[in-house]
Design a protein around this nucleic acid. Structure first.
Lengths: 162, 162
DNA sequence: GCTGAAAGCACAGCGAC
DNA sequence: GTCGCTGTGCTTTCAGC
């Protein structure tokens, strides 16, 4: 697998915190020249270590103040279509995340809706009212905290010549 | 609250998909001049509609191939410190997300670890082995799908003079 | 909302170490 | 691997409209 040195790890950490960080600022922060830094960032994207950059939106500001996490269990006969089902879920405008689980439930759906009525409609129309769904359990989300960036838990090999 | 017109909504949608999109490309895509577009993006950040931009990392590539979602319930006496507890969780390097729930469980912790042993250690050291935690339930995550960008579910007022 | 100018930066390719 | 250079184009801020 693609190995990351300490500088790559630092770049990943910084971009995880702010994906729009200017290259020259990032270079200074990780202690390398801007041209080198630019090449490394490009490489991280090309190698798939950084999959993309996404803006974090205040859902309430765009008219979806109510977030919920919905546990979903499919009926046994529909388990084969689990992937297709989850994929379809992810296309719906209310859906923020779909987590495919290995446990009692088949997956979790993280949604943001305009209100409780819209949430109810979402669950009925796309989940509990569907023939493939055996069970749903909806929990409202009060708050969502992002973890602090982490890169390379262990075995970070030293940088070339920092 | 800060109102968003159709152009702001389009900008939000594009940046949700790619936060590093070049300003001139974004401007062309939403149909306004680059300088105007730049001002709107700045305004969206300043108003807090866009809270930040974060790189999406391939956790497996940085040495954390195993992800899990952990349901946590605190003991009744510890409910008052729920916010502080969750905040502390979010600081741990393994934690990607903490979802504060209103339901049977108090919160969900989304973690990425180096392996099953590290996951077990995480749960024991920071959750089940803690005096404030009443119960935990760990589900492995097979896959994580991001929802497709959505902006302004309804009541998008027309743009000024698009 | 647009245009235009000016400074700084991004980005690619180069050679040198 | 690193760094520094150059050139083109873009970003960003500032006017004024």
């Amino acid at each position: 697998m693609t190995e990351l040195d300490a500088i790559d790890a630092a770049i990943v950490r910084e971009l995880q915190d702010d994906a729009r960080l200017a290259n020259n600022v990032l270079a200074a922060r990780v202690g390398i020249a801007p041209s080198t830094c630019h090449g490394r960032v490009r490489s991280l994207f090309e190698r798939g270590v950084i999959r993309g950059a996404h803006a974090e939106i205040d859902q309430a500001a765009i008219g979806r103040p109510l977030q919920a996490m919905i546990s979903v269990r499919l009926r046994p006969h529909a388990r084969g279509e689990l992937a297709a089902f989850a994929q379809a879920m992810a296309q719906l405008p209310e859906v923020l995340n779909v987590y495919f689980l290995a446990g009692a439930d088949d997956f979790l759906v993280h949604v943001a809706t305009a209100g409780s009525e819209e949430l109810r409609e979402f669950v009925v129309n796309h989940l509990s009212g569907t023939k493939d769904v055996a069970m749903t359990e909806t929990s409202l989300i009060f708050e969502h905290l992002r973890g602090r960036p982490a890169a390379e838990p262990r075995s970070v090999r030293p940088a070339p010549h920092a």
